[in-house]
Design a protein around this nucleic acid. Structure first.
Lengths: 157, 157
DNA sequence: GCGAACCTACTCGGATATGGGATGTCCGAGTTCTCGTGG
DNA sequence: CCACGAGAACTCGGACATCCCATATCCGAGTAGGTTCGC
């Protein structure tokens, strides 16, 4: 899995804390706050914009903002937006190739693919049930100063 | 996920059917049976040998054989042997870098990492509970001629 | 005829190329704020 | 003092390099069986 996922998730938490009341946060500031390459982070957020999770505003006081309430954005939404919706296990229909197996059209996926899909489904279900708000609440519980710290830093940068 | 996983899984089914009674199957034959690149498949099986899932015999009548009974090899064993035991999501401890977050030593993983680990754990658990024997039984049920077909082909090649 | 030594064919194993995608960078289009100017 | 327009600064968005790993390949080390020679 690309590490852009981790970057975007952390930055989305910042957006949930800072970009309230109609205020937008530039991607450059997000990158600076975490010490990340700015241009590449912007590229990752483009994917989130296309997925409809984030809205972008150009111009001088422009920036990024969550398009939905943080409790309506799941971790799976973010992961799929960055990594794509293709499953990690790609079945090439080996059983139909070569001397083994008749070359008929596949009526249904092979057993190996079905097992892999079940496993991925369990993974997706786990990520589906966790929202950005859940993560934010957990972080606030473990380090209550984090939101205020972020708000103060972004207000002066 | 690399496609070597799919190749090796299909070939392990063949081993379960053909390489009984002390008979070994060369990796070249396995590759030919499925129309796969022989040298690369051999390289993948090297990983399975190191993991202790397969034993290799050099020499004229050498080849590959399952090191354990097929009901004692889970899909997770094969996936981990090929892909490695590193989790797909790698936490870079972003919260400790840059102006955000104090640079203290991390006492425990961040909330995002914990959530990702839970999801991967669900995925691993699903794969752990399925063995090669389960897959083989399912295939035999759906196409009962597959084992005999494989045995006959490998006996004459 | 029988045994042993040699030879050949065949196997795995590691070292070695190559291509595609993830990673990283740059510049242009567009918008908003600001400042200066005229009324 | 107020309205207006030009300019500047700042933003995103897509096009352009670069690097690493999955993929693919080749050749050497080693073994088992077949063959041949000597007794």
């Amino acid at each position: 899995m690309g590490r852009g996922v981790e970057w975007v998730l952390h930055c989305c938490l910042d957006l949930a804390w800072v970009a309230r009341d109609g205020r937008a946060v530039p991607s450059v500031s997000l990158a600076a706050y975490h010490g990340l390459p700015a241009a590449y982070l912007s590229k990752q957020f483009q994917l989130l914009c296309r997925a409809g999770l984030v809205t972008s505003m150009p111009g001088r006081q422009g920036g990024l903002r969550l398009a939905l309430s943080s409790d309506r954005i799941s971790l799976l939404d973010v992961v799929v937006a960055i990594e794509g919706k293709e499953p990690a296990f790609r079945c090439m229909e080996i059983r139909r190739q070569g001397p083994g197996g008749v070359p008929g059209s596949p009526d249904r996926p092979c057993s190996i693919t079905q097992a892999m899909r079940r496993a991925e489904l369990a993974w997706r279900r786990e990520l589906q049930e966790i929202s950005l708000a859940d993560i934010a609440a957990e972080v606030e519980f473990k380090s209550p100063s984090a939101p205020a710290h972020a708000r103060q830093w972004f207000a002066t940068n």
